[in-house]
Design a binder for these strands. Structure first.
Lengths: 353, 353
DNA sequence: TTGAAAGCGCTAACAC
DNA sequence: GTGTTAGCGCTTTCAA
């Protein structure tokens, strides 16, 4: 690898002159700068950032710690962040946790050892104590989820409101037995979404019935399937379903498709997020659209600002975005209890190929 | 930040002893090691990798250069690579090019400055000369696409065979006017897929008809829509369509949906890749499944091997995976030219809600 | 079993 | 306008 020293020797200059020329220092003559730049380009010189960091210059790397990049929710975020980072000459390290605190810790150790400039994290439900400690020494922002032990900087969506609205939409159609498939309440997002679901029921004068809220790992498609199965196999199954995460929604939809459940005739469904295929599912999935791109951009800009200007004081910062409900074909009033058997059979045949 | 020197001072040892204790050097007594490790943990010491790199230890960072992480094709790859890297204590830097050689170069410069251990790249169609130069100095592997100016290491799929099979499937159904929407032939993948398409036609004794192959930016959903529009608006539209990239497929499907084209009655479609929603589209999309996860894993393991063992010689390495065709409902024999108007009207109504 | 010291590539304070 | 020199945190001889 070519170093400033190589250039210096070739041009019979000192390393410091070369360094200064490369840094466009006003004290260096234009002619020298030109010679240095030419030699550097010709020799294929690439500055060694490790060496620069040792001199105290901050790293230009930011760590992105998320559950799973395959979740389009997170890949959208990663894309948005990546673009903003690149525009400001920063790089993004991708770290996946799969919601495992041990993997989370391992990644934070690595990021810490790399002396990253900052971290953007969607924390696991219960981060390891060492993770908390490591993050305390790093500029960081929480995204979507929010853990009290971590810093006060957070960008997220109004989870409560999103689920309240989704549920209210079903209630407006006249449903009274509504099932909910969501994340665990130890996760702030999980708790808030569940609270939104319940709040909507309460406002409609309904009590939540036992067993109609099934909670579990939010990043698991398989759990979504299991949850749907459990709800539908109940003695008194719900007439409508709301979901509280993208993978859970995928799981629920898979299960409904494989069972041949007719939507919205037999069951209404409101999804979470707006994946590419959601509009194609059955009669089109009514779902909560979340403003992820805006949120990610805001988050990136905030962190970059935080990194470039010396923080006066780490004041709490919170930004909440609200989503909107996209109404498609998967929601309708509940079927009358006594259905015409003929009608049902006809419909079944049409759908099963 | 805590350094080995801080630990040394606290324990009244020398930096070298501390360093050796941390590195588990056999010359250090167990007792000293224990004391050092305890102090390190307590003080929250995290090794400075930049300093270590300056001593010649290789970086543990690998650059992943891809067009767009939102493409589930690439996010799957990123996930797979990330997992394998983590298992071997490596980190992944995410760099998106959006198929722009300038962005590609910018990223490679950054990666080079960071002295990454290696690079995994899905190159743009025409990489900048400097990109080629930078990559020449780095261990790297090409993924999916393959540019002759870059190294001989490549992991990809048999693009030719994939499209040949997809097209053959349509031919077997009796189609003779088949449209193709794919990437540009300056891209190796684009050229190979087009070749596969043409080869299938030839084997069936057909000549490719003018204008039935529409090529364009492979990562553009919008181009997929435009291409579909152009093909369907033709005076003699095709009776079937094959696509040659995930985003193009998404675009084509969108266009077909918004036009209310009946599939497979009016038009048969074979997609590319197997996105989550493809099975939900219309009657279920017949599509080419590609073994991306296996390919990504192989690629990661190969690169890690290459990084850890000193390369005897950079022998050419090529691994080609073949996919399989998933047959769902979107393909059928072409409609007879004289259709019953009544039948058609009925179908239309049913589908447009 | 441990310590002293050199040096990786760069920047910056201090010469001249 | 340019050179000399010290030092960032670590690894690694070379000594003891």
């Amino acid at each position: 690898m070519i170093t400033t020293r190589d250039i210096a020797e070739r041009l019979d200059l000192s390393v410091s002159t070369v360094g200064r020329a490369l840094a466009d220092d006003p004290r260096i003559s234009e002619e020298t700068k030109l010679r240095v730049r030419e030699a550097a380009a010709e020799m294929g010189y690439v500055a060694n950032r490790a060496a620069r960091m040792m001199r105290g210059v901050a790293s230009n790397v930011v760590g992105l710690v998320i559950p799973d990049i395959r979740n389009s929710f997170y890949s959208t975020i990663a894309h948005e962040l990546s673009g903003n980072m690149e525009a400001r000459d920063h790089q993004l390290i991708l770290s996946e946790t799969d919601d495992d605190p041990v993997r989370e810790l391992r990644h934070l150790r690595e990021l810490s050892a790399s002396r990253v400039a900052g971290v953007i994290i969607v924390p696991t439900a219960r981060p390891h104590h060492d993770s908390v400690r490591l993050l305390a020494a790093l500029p960081h922002v929480q995204l979507l989820r929010r853990h009290p032990a971590l810093g006060a900087q957070w960008f997220g969506i109004d989870d409560f409101q999103v689920l309240q609205r989704s549920t209210a939409h079903l209630l407006a159609h006249g449903h009274s037995r509504i099932g909910y498939v969501g994340g665990p309440s130890e996760l702030r997002t999980g708790a808030e979404r569940l609270r939104g679901f319940r709040s909507a029921l309460e406002q409609a004068g309904l009590r939540e019935e036992d067993g109609l809220a099934v909670l579990g790992k939010p990043s698991s498609v398989a759990h979504g399937r299991r949850a749907a199965r459990r709800l539908l196999d109940d003695a008194a199954p719900p007439t409508a379903l709301v979901t509280g995460s993208v993978p859970l929604t995928l799981g629920v939809l898979e299960e409904l498709t494989s069972r041949g459940v007719r939507t919205p005739e037999e069951l209404s469904v409101v999804g979470f997020g707006d994946e590419p295929g959601f509009s194609w599912w059955g009669p089109g999935l009514t779902t909560a659209r979340l403003p992820v791109t805006e949120m990610a951009t805001d988050c990136a800009l905030w962190l970059l600002h935080r990194l470039t200007t010396k923080p006066h004081r780490d004041t709490a910062y919170t930004s909440v975005s609200t989503g909107s409900l996209i109404v498609r074909g998967s929601t309708a009033p509940p079927a009358r209890s006594g259905r015409l058997p003929g009608e049902r059979a006809a419909q079944r045949t049409r759908r099963s190929r």
